[in-house]
Simulated assay, not measured.
Amino acid sequence: MRANNLWCGILLAAGSGRRFDASGQSNKLMQALPSGITVAASSAKHLLAVLSRSVAVVAEHTPALATQLAELGCDICVCSPPSAVSSQGMSHSLQCGLIHSPADCAGWIIALADMPYVNTETIAALVRTMQSGAGIAVPVYQGRRGNPVGFSREYLPQLLALRGDQGARSLLKIYPVSEVAVNDAGIFQDIDLPQDLIASMNI
């Protein structure tokens, strides 16, 4: 059994969100949900409630987002602008977070900042599964896998070798995965389009 405080969170918040606003003027992560809290803040609060040592990866051109997440308790890792790393995409952001995270992390829960409806209990269940020895853990609701995903440190070389925008999910097709049953449709619900902000789900 690994110690609770050795697990870390990584919140990926450096994406461009072009489907939400093709002009790039409106950052979807800074939009308010019906509760009044921003998309990124909701995602961060749920992660921090379980993993107080969490790194938020943000882009250089989003200082307001970085400030908001830092005030909530995230350690901030500023990533290169998306235009400079477009060939690497999400994998680059993830690797920035991994390198920036504490060296004694036994593993990571990798969460997406545009998924504000993931329940705190889902994150806690993933951590418990990892503490019990799982190398990779993924939440499952009604037979479907979702986010976030947990990885133990043994997979660090594979995570650092990723390329492209698919991110760590490509490893789930190659290595053994522990599926964690949860009662949480939020593991599928991202904020991709403006109409997603009016989702009727409870945070």
Rank of each mutant, 00 (worst) to 15 (best):
R19A: 15
A70H: 14
H61W: 12
G17Q: 07
D75E: 14
A40T: 08
S86E: 12
P81D: 02
A70Q: 15
N27I: 06
V78N: 02
E71Q: 14
V39L: 10
V58Y: 04
A49H: 11
Q31N: 03
S80D: 13
V78W: 00
P63Q: 07
A40M: 06
S43V: 01
H46D: 00
L69Q: 07
A40R: 05
G24R: 08
C77Y: 00
L11M: 09
A70W: 08
A56S: 12
A59C: 10
A84N: 00
F20W: 08
R19F: 13
C77G: 00
L51E: 00
G17A: 09
Q88T: 09
K45N: 09
G15W: 00
A56M: 12
T38L: 08
I76N: 07
L48W: 07
C77N: 00
V39C: 07
I76A: 10
S42T: 03
L12W: 04
F20E: 06
V50P: 00
R18F: 06
Q31S: 07
L29C: 10
S52K: 15
C77A: 15
A14E: 10
S43K: 05
L47H: 02
L72T: 04
C79Q: 13
L12P: 11
G89Q: 03
L12Q: 07
A64V: 13
A56K: 13
T67W: 07
L47D: 01
P81M: 11
N27R: 03
R19H: 13
L69W: 09
A13N: 01
L33R: 10
S23V: 04
A49P: 01
V55W: 03
S23G: 13
A56Q: 12
Q68G: 01
A56H: 10
G24F: 11
L29T: 12
L69P: 05
G15I: 05
S80R: 14
A49L: 04
A49Q: 13
G73P: 02
E60C: 06
V85S: 06
L47A: 04
G73E: 03
